[in-house]
Amino acid sequence: MTTVTKTPQATEPASASRDTAARTRRSERRLALVFLIPTVGGLALFTFIPIVGSLVLAFFKWDVISSPKFVGLSNFIDIVADGTVRRSFLNTILFVVTTVILQLSVALGLAALVQSKLPGWLRSIFRSVFFFPLILSAASVSIMMSYLFNQQFGLVNWLLGHIGIPAVPWLNSGPGAIVMVILVYVWQNFGFSFLLFLGGLASIPREVYEAAAIDGASGWRQFSRITLPLVSPTILVASVMAIIASLQIFDQPYVLTRGGPGDSTRTAVMVIYESAFQQLQFGRASAIGLVLTVLIMLVTAVQFRLSRRFVFYS
C-alpha cells in the first residue's frame, strides 16, 4: 500500500499517489464485481431462488398445465397420510442408520490397520484400493452389482451355494433388496470415511502408543483407550457427513430395484422424483423436499451441540 505524506513540500507527489490509489481502488472494485457475478449471480439464480421457490411451492398445488393453486398445509397433511411417503421416509432412516454404522466401523477398522506398522508400499496399496470404489459412478456400480447378485446366474449366489446356502432372492424379495441396497451403498462409500479416518489417525502422535506399549497395553486396549477417544472429532465429522449423504440416497435403489419390490426400497428422494417428474405434483414434491431439508438441518444442528459437549479435543 502506498503511504501519503502530509508535509507541504510533498504536495505534488502526494496528490499524484492519492490519484493512483483512488484509481487502483476503483479498478479493484470493478474486478471484484466482475469476478463475483458468475458465482454469486449463478448461486442466486440456481440455488437461492429455487430454495425460495421450493418453500412457496410446498403450499401450492401445481401440475404445470393449470395455474398454481394455494392449498395451505394440505400437501403436508397429504404426505403424512400417504403410506408410500411414510414408508419411504422410514426406509431412508433405516438406510441411514445401517449404512452409517457399517460404513464408519468398516472404515475406522481398516484405517486403524492401514495406519499401524506396515511396510510403506503395502500401506499405499491398501490406501488406494479402499478408496477406489468412491470414484466409480453409483449407476455403473449398481448395474454391475445387480448381475453379481442375480438370483440364478449371479456369482454371489453361486459362491454361497458352495457353502450350502440356497439361492438368495436378492432383488426379488423385500428383505433381500434392502440388504443389497445397504451392501452396495456401503461398498461404494466407506472409502470416504476411510479417508477422513486416515487423516484423523495420522494426527495422533506415535509416542502415545509407544508409552502405552511400554505400560503393557495390548492392541485392543490401545485401540479402545487411545485411538477411539483421540479420533472422536473425526468420528463426529465422518458420521455427520455420512448421515447427510445417505439421507439423499437415490442412485443405488433406483437402478437396483426402482424402489421395489413393493415400496420396500423406496427412499425420500425417490418419492420427490416420482411426485414431481412422473405424477407432475410439483407442490407435493416440494413439501417432501422441505421435510428432508429440515431433517438434514437437524443433523447439522445436533452436530454443533455434540461437538461442544462430548468430543475430546486435544
Binding site: L45, F46, P50, I51, G53, A276, F277, A285, L292, T293
Partner: peptide, 13 residues
Amino acid sequence: VPMQVTIVPVFML
C-alpha cells in the same frame, strides 16, 4: 441445502 430439494424449481427455471 441438498440439490434434490432445489431440483424442481431448477427444472422449471
